[in-house]
Design a binder for these strands. Sequence first.
DNA 1: ATGTCTATCTCGCTC
DNA 2: GAGCGAGGTAGACAT
Lengths: 231, 231
Amino acid sequence: MRLVIARCSVDYAGRLSAHLPLATRLLLVKGDGSVLVHSDSLSYKPLNWMSPPCTVAVIEPDADQAKAGVSEVWRVAQAKTADLLMISIHEILHDSSHELGFDPGLSKDGTEAHLQKLLAEQIELLGDGFTFVRREYMTAIGPVDILAKDVSGRSIAVEIKRRGDIDGVEQLTRYLELMNRDPHLAPVAGVFAAQEIKPQARTLAEDRGIRCVLLDYDAMRGMDDSHSRLF
Amino acid sequence: MRLVIARCSVDYAGRLSAHLPLATRLLLVKGDGSVLVHSDSLSYKPLNWMSPPCTVAVIEPDADQAKAGVSEVWRVAQAKTADLLMISIHEILHDSSHELGFDPGLSKDGTEAHLQKLLAEQIELLGDGFTFVRREYMTAIGPVDILAKDVSGRSIAVEIKRRGDIDGVEQLTRYLELMNRDPHLAPVAGVFAAQEIKPQARTLAEDRGIRCVLLDYDAMRGMDDSHSRLF
DNA sequence: ATGTCTATCTCGCTC
DNA sequence: GAGCGAGGTAGACAT
């Protein structure tokens, strides 16, 4: 990993065009060749960047550029697309390289996948007598998070989100429309289950006869066998 | 901006929980107090981070941590939420600070906003006799990109995308449904305009009586007065 | 390789 | 502050 602090201007041409005027910024060149341009604020997101696989070539400035004070130009090219990043460097204020080695990566807890697993194990949270059929039930337009049956044996398609948004209701609606055309499944009812459901999403769902259920992740994890075994 | 290369482990607790085992990483502390943890690969996205406003407190390791080789702990706390990032530092391999100053920021060209502006000026691209009414026409469920009228005076709702996907058709469908309930507007027809329209999106749109129009950004920019004035 | 879906999505805008 | 939509969305996972 190479860290460069430099006064530079940046031009990107690819899916759109973008330009950064001359200013002092951090140029971060990673081990895989990718490049990030960061300013001193607006966390998280680089101002500009190039994803791997890409190549960095340092080229001499032409006469006009040299006259404008450019000492070197980095030509960062994507290997698979035509995306191009040109970094015109006026002055390098810091330049250091560091060997970081392998990173074991991030482990997460509390994602939608965890919610889905817990709800599959605790399907009775949706109602007395509910039974679990399967997770990731495949349809022609994608997998339904959970397929279950209610106490009367009717099929229930469950869409799970951490934050229940209008998009999730549209998604479930498409699944229900398709599944209700299948005589082996129909009639299929929908349940929209999430840790948080936005008012607009709830309104749209209930307008379409889809039941909304709020999930309490901590309570569900507390009920989880594999977890409670630790205590 | 402070750049630290350190052997560290990281724990995040907030919207989810996450853990990074001991490894060498870049810790980037920005002028606004935000912190980014980057590894040597997987560009763009930090492994872990804290967005501003947040505070960084350097605290002494407790007895167990000190025994495990921790020399200092950074406690990064979000000011508005309960999010917490704990960085346990075992060894600092590099540490430098740099004054970057103001960044004028990024200017873009070729976004959906540009397409929308150009189409508003060249609304006749949708058909002879079409007239422009307004951009960002507000409805209860969000703004319609362009409201226009056809040659017969019927209202036309236009949804613009750079890449026309099924989501965009759903979005326009929701607007049309709502607007057609308004007696002052109804009947409203829909036009789905994009630089590229996916076959699935086209099929869905046409099935719903929504007309699809392909936009040529370069040609539209060539027609633009403010642009052609340059030549 | 391609498509689909999630995201501590981020970011900007409007009401 | 909440809601809504765009993003060079990126990144993960399945086909």
